[in-house]
Amino acid sequence: MIGSGHASTALASKLKREIDIRIPEVDLLPLEEVPGKIDVIDEITIGVYTEIKGDLRGRLLTVFSEEDALRLEEMVSGRSAKGRRDFSAATVTDVSDVLGANSLSAISDFFGMKIEKTPSESARDILGALLQQVLLDISQHSDVVLFSRTEIFVSAEKFNCHQMLFLEASSLEKLLKAMDVML
């Protein structure tokens, strides 16, 4: 994905680890088909929710397993999170903001678009339920969604973190128009 290089560098310096961000899957789907793209939807996860406004409209949802939210905290703080059960909202929002800001700024630079983000909010809950919030938000403007999912690897170890970007249909039209102008 455009910007994944930047994102991995920024995140690597934060975590002091090598970061690898895989090329995401991108799909254009009816909203009700998104949950089927996700393997396990009934588990409790840590999710970070951000609204995207401006020239592109949609949502970002970054999800971590509970275990990895704690691992992240160990990496950032350098202290052991052993014995702790609660995740740090500040750390998970921070990491997903770094990932999100970089991919969004790459898109906005590349296409010459203005994209804004609202402050992120984290929650510990069932993944499918967090996802439904995003889908139903989007449903107010669009029946389909441009859905991309990025997996993040830290030091070659699979880190169970996904960042999902959901864009409304009108944003897809804008991206296509912008590409048309460039070609």
Binding site: Y49, E51, A123, L130, Q133, L136, D137, S139, Q140
Partner: peptide, 11 residues
């Protein structure tokens, strides 16, 4: 409503 910041009306 999973997130307080979710904009718009309470779907």
């Amino acid at each position: 409503k999973m997130f307080k910041s979710a904009a718009g009306f309470h779907i």
